[in-house]
Amino acid sequence: MAENSNSPHVSVFASPGRYVQGRGALGRLGPLVVGFGSKPLVLADGVVRDLTEPVLSGSFEEAAVPLVFERFGGVPTRAEADRVSSVIDEGGHDVIIGLGGGAAIDTAKAAGDNAGVPWVSAATVASTDAPTSALSVVYTESGAFESYRFYDRNPALVVVDTQYVAEAPARFLSGGVGDALATWIEARAVRRAHSHNMVGGFPTHAGTALAELSWDLLWSSSLPALEAVRSDLVTPDVEAIVEATTLLSGLGFESGGLAAAHAVHDGLTAVDRTHHLTHGEKVNIGSLTQMLLEGEEASDIDEFAEFTARVGLPTTLTEAGLGEADEAVLEEVVRAAMDPSETIHNLAFEPTHQDVRDALRAVEGVGRRARSRAGLGEPTPEDYT
């Protein structure tokens, strides 16, 4: 459930201080970050550092601030956040920049909060809506969901360079679409149920409307945007999808609220056989599960499944590695998804464990029919390895 679920009956909207998106945006990072500190620390893995260091060197030199990298360990665990916050303290850094994807960015938020310094999100992929939010998803060392960690402020600055997004593997953007499509599915459920959002209040009209706007852009621009990034191109459709998956979905999920789709994602992380899927790919299984749980029109569910299959997202348990899973494995997924702290309890009704398990099982048939209509053939887990 969202933080402060016993908060007064107020509506709350949260957002980052500034959002900058476009081709070449990383080249502006140095001048932009000096408003928040004079000794930044950049958290990134080795691949992202190699890709971005030439651009950042010039940008930070222009701003007359030192460029200091710290290598990200790869998994956003509590221990990794503690390690990085120690680096901040020991180096006297006054701002931290999470550079790359959602895992590095979420870790930078946690480390910045530990150390008491502002944090900046600099995204080179559009695979999740993590960059804008005032929370981190914390995982165990093995990659299972552990908890949400909430902060009293959002990133001071978010920078997204769409040229890097276009040059990244298309699977990253596809995953971002899966994550963002869930935003409206969940936000509308939260509003119907009069539940709390992720910042401890009721959703504002703005938060819910931004979730719906993200949905509309995703349906109109996802397929041409994915076609463009397969050729490393930045087009208006790519810019629209990056905004939808990063800014609009980020504001929409945080201020609109989460429900069953992300809870099912969290449940899927509890079993090793799903770890080949990205965050957004698991979320798509969760979106289908929520739609089935809520009794959405069959035609709407079929349309959604076919569209997301064309986007390149998994729509079956088989693709998730659960096609032959026995009841014990599925029960582990359901148990984690139904944890008392989970956002599935934001629905307008309280599903039983059997309700969730049956909806999860029903995803297989829906997804197979969708793949057949899309001409994609039989699903296999190897599609996502």
Results as ranks from 00 to 15, higher is better:
residue 76 P to A: 11
residue 84 V to G: 10
residue 90 E to Q: 14
residue 80 E to C: 09
residue 69 F to M: 11
residue 88 I to D: 03
residue 72 F to D: 00
residue 62 E to C: 05
residue 60 F to M: 07
residue 99 L to M: 09
residue 71 R to I: 11
residue 66 P to E: 11
residue 84 V to S: 05
residue 86 S to L: 10
residue 78 R to P: 01
residue 86 S to K: 13
residue 91 G to L: 10
residue 69 F to L: 05
residue 78 R to N: 12
residue 84 V to W: 07
residue 79 A to C: 01
residue 70 E to P: 07
residue 79 A to V: 13
residue 85 S to M: 04
residue 86 S to T: 13
residue 84 V to F: 08
residue 77 T to C: 04
residue 71 R to P: 01
residue 86 S to N: 09
residue 75 V to E: 15
residue 65 V to H: 02
residue 78 R to G: 10
residue 79 A to G: 08
residue 74 G to D: 01
residue 92 G to V: 12
residue 63 A to I: 00
residue 89 D to P: 01
residue 93 H to T: 03
residue 66 P to L: 04
residue 62 E to W: 02
residue 88 I to V: 15
residue 69 F to I: 08
residue 95 V to W: 04
residue 91 G to Q: 12
residue 74 G to N: 07
residue 86 S to R: 14
residue 84 V to T: 10
residue 62 E to K: 15
residue 67 L to W: 07
residue 81 A to R: 05
residue 76 P to N: 10
residue 88 I to G: 06
residue 84 V to I: 15
residue 93 H to E: 01
residue 96 I to Y: 09
residue 68 V to M: 01
residue 87 V to T: 14
residue 78 R to K: 12
residue 80 E to A: 08
residue 99 L to T: 06
residue 95 V to Q: 09
residue 72 F to G: 00
residue 82 D to I: 12
residue 97 I to E: 01
residue 69 F to R: 10
residue 96 I to D: 11
residue 61 E to F: 01
residue 81 A to P: 07
residue 77 T to R: 02
residue 96 I to V: 15
residue 82 D to V: 14
residue 94 D to Y: 12
residue 67 L to K: 05
residue 62 E to M: 08
residue 61 E to Y: 01
residue 77 T to H: 04
residue 95 V to S: 09
residue 87 V to F: 01
residue 79 A to Y: 02
residue 69 F to W: 04
residue 66 P to T: 08
residue 84 V to L: 09
residue 76 P to Y: 10
